[in-house]
Design a protein around this nucleic acid. Structure first.
Lengths: 193, 193
DNA sequence: CTTCTGCCTTGATGTAGGATAAGAAATGAA
DNA sequence: TTCATTTCTTATCCTACATCAAGGCAGAAG
């Protein structure tokens, strides 16, 4: 699992064996069964994860019991409630596995170690976070200004592989609509071709 | 204007005079008139800003011509299209002044300088970004799961001073509803007391 | 003072997507 | 295979909010 991470990082930044070893020492490999929960909304979460295989998601359950997906994390994605993790505060959302998965876990200490792993690594994480922020901004804009159909088309374009891989109810929960609505949209789109 | 920044940073992190001097050298003081635009959506933006006085906002205009506010930045807030700035890509959103304001501008080079300003300063910016991300996440969740009224009440609770200070049409553009709807919500709430 | 020009309000009507219900199809377990 | 469970679809009705249209009111400019 660590070699998976190594392969992933190889293209992105140059790490010496020593540095990679240090990184390996703060990451804990773990296998997750489908449905298994890693972080529970409202509880103080202890882990974030790098996904080597499978797929996780972060999501919230609102007062009406509806699920809303914040992020999907297939292979080579990082997923965590960073804020809660670092500040030891109750997690804003839950994280669970959508498929049997193999992940590398990290705890709050991970962020303390970051500086010791060298400036390039730090910059890499800064950038990761920046990308998350931009993605969130784009999504908020889309949610505020586009129709459900437009957002769905956008999702397909942006994550074609996930479109195949995930059940529609999860995509609906990501788009912020009901499965019924998504079904109607798909029917409508199918008719137009 | 720099002394304003100094006062603001004082509580947050210990900076030597030398470090602060270096920081001062990458920041350009600027006065903005109300309505003046700092970054234009779609163009490659050259600046972000620390607001010493007044209030800015970031916003997008969608295809139907509707404005959506992403962020308000009153005194002591930072505002920028970080991603576009660093990557020299067209800005996702515009930034303009809602009141006559005094700001400290920074360019893409600012992020290059960060490491030289020392680890605590770097950590400070990492945290700023983290807070932005969390705020965005919360807002996305709210937009997906709460009614307009709930979001308005939340806004009042979170930003009481802005509620006074900003015209309602801007708050509506932030909440993702029309000014008409906000007016109706306020009427409804007023009736209940 | 008067005339503009934004901003806010109110009312009438429209609509995207929700809620509910029920059946079909797929998946999985025994 | 058969039975059960979950997922997807379709139809009907409903609601939160948008759109359109008009009028009121306050501050700015003449």
């Amino acid at each position: 699992m660590l070699d998976h991470l190594k392969a992933y990082l190889q293209n992105k930044l140059p790490l010496t064996d020593a540095q990679f070893g240090a990184l390996g020492r703060v990451l804990v490999p773990k296998e997750l069964k489908r449905q298994q929960q890693l972080v529970r909304q409202g509880e103080v979460g202890r882990y974030g994860a790098f996904v080597a295989q499978g797929c996780l998601r972060s999501f919230v359950v609102d007062k009406k019991g509806k699920e809303h997906v914040l992020q999907f994390a297939p292979e080579n994605w990082w997923i965590a409630d960073q804020y809660g993790l670092i500040h030891h505060e109750p997690a804003l959302f839950s994280i669970d596995a959508l498929e049997d998965s193999r992940v590398l876990l990290f705890g709050p200490d991970f962020y303390q170690q970051l500086p010791q792993l060298g400036p390039p690594f730090q910059a890499f994480f800064y950038e990761l976070q920046q990308n998350s922020l931009q993605a969130m901004q784009k999504r908020l804009i889309a949610t505020l200004s586009a129709t459900a159909e437009e957002r769905y088309l956008d999702f397909i374009r942006t994550y074609p592989s996930l479109t195949q891989r995930l059940p529609q109810r999860l995509i609906a929960a990501y788009l912020g609509i009901t499965p019924e609505s998504l079904s109607r949209i798909r029917k409508e789109l199918a008719g137009h071709r």
